[in-house]
Design a protein around this nucleic acid. Structure first.
Length: 150
DNA sequence: GCCAACGTTGGC
DNA sequence: GCCAACGTTGGC
């Protein structure tokens, strides 16, 4: 089983939205690296941190489970969607997604500031400057360290 | 709101 | 295939 961190802007879709919806397609990914991770590496049963990005206090806020394999993101074919991609061929969809299921909220949010200050997390990908990937693989050691902060 | 970092696009 | 221009992400 693998561990992940997945970013979302709380103003758009936050941990409380997932708590309400219980399960949700993680749509809108328009980055090839992330698509490839969905397709080639993610497995049903993997666990992910829910991370709030681009907000007042960027932080890990909850846990969720990957509950599907990768399949086409239908928003790419919807001209009304902000994720519409006219260059994607319906016979060979360019963009994929996975379904995620709410697991739980953390007892307290673990902020990016706190993660960056952690001595043993200096190499953590989220802490690297200029890292814009919205889905990040997390090592078991890092995963445990972070959960211990809770 | 600013801007650094990075990805994508398209002319050549 | 190079690279300048442009767009997006996301911390601050």
């Amino acid at each position: 089983m693998a561990y992940w961190l997945m970013k979302s802007e709380p103003d758009v879709y936050g941990i409380d939205d997932l708590k309400r919806d219980k399960q949700e397609p993680w749509d809108g990914i328009r980055n090839y690296q992330v698509r490839n991770m969905f397709r080639d590496q993610m497995q049903i049963g993997d666990i992910a941190f829910f991370y709030h990005s681009n907000c007042k206090i960027p932080a890990i806020t909850g846990l969720m489970t990957i509950v599907s394999g990768a399949y086409p993101d239908i928003t790419q074919f919807d001209p009304e969607s902000k994720y519409f991609d006219g260059k994607s061929d319906p016979k060979n969809p360019r963009w994929l997604l996975v379904d995620v299921k709410y697991k739980r909220k953390l007892k307290r949010e673990i902020s990016l500031k706190e993660l960056k200050a952690h001595e043993q997390l200096q190499d953590f990908r989220l802490n690297q400057k200029g890292n814009r990937l919205s889905v990040i693989p997390v090592g078991k050691k890092e995963w445990d360290l972070i959960l211990d902060l809770e």
